[in-house]
Amino acid sequence: QLNAMAHQIQEMFPQVPYHLVLQDLQLTRSVEITTDNILEGRIQVP
């Protein structure tokens, strides 16, 4: 299920590496919260 959620987020934010999306999802278990984390700059994109 997390993989499906990660792919959904990757479609919206292809610039964010998959492993970072998955790592955040493991903590949040939420597409909405992880999306917010990306938008708020809480996930550092190399």
Rank of each mutant, 00 (worst) to 15 (best):
L22N: 02
Q15R: 08
V45G: 11
F13L: 03
Q23T: 08
V16C: 08
D36V: 15
M5V: 07
L25T: 00
H7F: 12
F13R: 01
R29C: 12
Y18P: 05
L27G: 07
Q26W: 14
V16Q: 01
P17V: 06
V21I: 15
P46H: 08
H19G: 08
Q8P: 02
R42L: 08
G41N: 08
Q15C: 11
I43S: 01
V16M: 11
S30Q: 03
E32H: 08
L22A: 04
I9H: 01
I9A: 02
M5N: 05
T28G: 02
I38T: 00
A4H: 12
Q10P: 00
N37G: 03
P17Y: 04
P17I: 04
L25A: 00
Q15G: 11
T35R: 14
V16P: 04
Q26I: 15
V31Y: 08
P14D: 04
Q26P: 00
H7D: 11
I33Q: 13
R29E: 12
M12Q: 11
I33W: 08
N3K: 14
Q44I: 13
I9K: 00
L39Q: 07
E40D: 08
H19E: 13
H19W: 14
V21D: 00
N3R: 13
N3V: 15
T28P: 02
D36F: 15
R42Y: 07
D36P: 01
T35L: 13
T28E: 03
V45A: 10
Q8C: 10
H19Y: 09
E32S: 11
T28I: 01
L22V: 09
V45M: 13
H7C: 12
Q23A: 15
I33G: 08
P17A: 07
T35G: 05
L22P: 00
M5H: 05
I38N: 00
F13M: 03
F13A: 01
D36Q: 15
N37D: 01
D24R: 00
A4G: 09
H7Q: 14
I9C: 02
M5K: 06
S30Y: 03
H7M: 14
G41H: 06
N37H: 08
E11V: 13
V16Y: 09
T28M: 03
E32T: 10
P46T: 12
I43T: 04
N37Y: 00
V16T: 04
Q44K: 11
R42G: 04
R29L: 15
L27Q: 12
P46E: 12
E11S: 12
P17Q: 05
V31E: 06
T35S: 09
R29G: 15
I38C: 04
I43M: 08
Q10C: 12
Q1R: 11
V31N: 06
Q1D: 15
Y18S: 05
A6D: 01
R42I: 06
L20V: 09
T35F: 07
E40A: 15
A6T: 05
L39H: 07
F13S: 01
I33R: 13
L2Q: 04
Q10S: 13
R29A: 13
S30I: 01
L2W: 11
L39T: 08
I9G: 00
P14E: 03
T35D: 01
I33D: 10
L20F: 07
I38R: 00
Q23L: 12
E40P: 01
D24L: 07
Q1M: 15
G41I: 04
I38P: 00
A6Q: 03
D24C: 06
F13H: 07
L22H: 05
Q10R: 11
I43G: 02
F13Y: 10
I33C: 07
L20M: 10
I43W: 06
A6W: 06
M12Y: 07
N37P: 01
M12H: 07
M5A: 08
L2S: 04
L22I: 11
V45K: 09
Q23G: 07
Q1W: 15
Q44F: 14
A4M: 12
A6E: 02
N3W: 14
T35P: 01
L25N: 00
Q10I: 13
A4W: 14
L20W: 08
N37E: 01
L27V: 12
N37K: 06
Q1A: 11
L25M: 02
H7P: 02
E32Y: 10
Q10M: 15
N3Y: 14
V31G: 06
G41M: 06
D36A: 14
Q44N: 10
E40K: 15
Q44H: 13
Q26L: 14
R42M: 07
P14Q: 05
V31W: 11
V16S: 03
Q1E: 15
Q44G: 13
R42K: 08
M12R: 14
Q8G: 07
E11K: 14
M5I: 09
D24M: 06
I43D: 01
I9T: 01
N3G: 09
A6K: 02
N37S: 04
Q8V: 12
A6I: 10
Q44E: 10
L22G: 00
P14N: 05
P17M: 05
T34R: 00
T35I: 15
D24H: 03
